[in-house]
Simulated assay, not measured.
Amino acid sequence: MRKGYTENETAIANILTEANILWLALTDNDAPYCVPVNFAVEGNVIYIHSGKRGRKAACLNTGATVAFSTAVDVRMRQGGDNACDQGYLFRSVMGHGTPRLVDDDEKMHGLDLLTVKHLGKQLPYKEAALPATVVYAIDVENISARIKE
């Protein structure tokens, strides 16, 4: 594995815990499509939520493999007087997996994980919003981290 890359589960888990946004790379008939999403992780599963319609949902509903990435602690590294000596320091995670639409019980579990991750506590949901919301579980097939500190 290249310098700075790792498959260390603790390093990956720490980055995923700190990150707020996951960049999700999808493909449809038109072109590749990349979208930022809120997410939560449990084990080897990434949970995201979506409306039932739209390009993101249509891509996820195909079950085609998706790629994802996130980064934390992104900052400029000051180099010398040469442009090639400049760069960034960061901790990032990248990987891919297969999305699946989850059933009602797992849907509520996924929403609860998202709520606690992003709001710090469990809150009630608007009953009217739940039927229009779907949750996808991305079963992670490959994941690694890159750390440049």
Rank of each mutant, 00 (worst) to 15 (best):
M1S: 13
R2V: 08
R2W: 07
G4T: 07
G4Y: 06
Y5G: 02
Y5Q: 15
E7G: 10
N8H: 04
N8F: 02
E9Y: 05
T10F: 10
A11M: 04
A11R: 13
N14Q: 12
E18M: 00
E18Q: 00
A19N: 00
A25S: 10
L26H: 02
L26I: 05
D28T: 06
D30I: 03
A31D: 02
P32S: 09
P32G: 09
V35F: 01
V35N: 02
P36A: 01
P36C: 02
V37R: 06
V41N: 14
V41D: 15
N44Q: 13
I46D: 10
S50V: 01
S50A: 11
S50H: 01
S50D: 01
G51W: 01
K52N: 02
G54T: 13
G54M: 14
R55Y: 08
K56M: 14
A57I: 03
A58C: 11
L60I: 12
L60E: 05
N61V: 05
G63R: 10
T65V: 11
V66G: 11
T70Y: 08
A71H: 04
V72T: 06
D73V: 09
V74A: 10
V74K: 05
R75K: 06
M76V: 11
Q78N: 06
Q78I: 15
G79D: 11
G80L: 07
G80D: 07
D81I: 12
D81E: 08
C84Q: 00
D85G: 06
D85S: 07
Q86D: 01
L89C: 14
R91T: 12
M94C: 12
H96R: 04
H96S: 09
G97N: 08
G97P: 15
T98I: 15
T98A: 09
R100A: 03
L101P: 03
V102Y: 11
V102H: 01
D103N: 07
D104V: 06
E106H: 02
K107A: 10
K107D: 06
M108Y: 09
M108P: 03
H109A: 14
L111Q: 14
D112T: 14
D112K: 15
L113W: 04
L113M: 10
T115D: 07
K117F: 12
K117E: 04
G120L: 12
K121Q: 09
Q122D: 07
K126I: 09
K126F: 13
L130T: 03
L130V: 15
A132G: 05
Y136R: 02
A137F: 13
A137S: 12
A137M: 09
D139Y: 15
V140P: 04
S144G: 00
K148Y: 09
K148T: 02
E149M: 01
E149F: 00
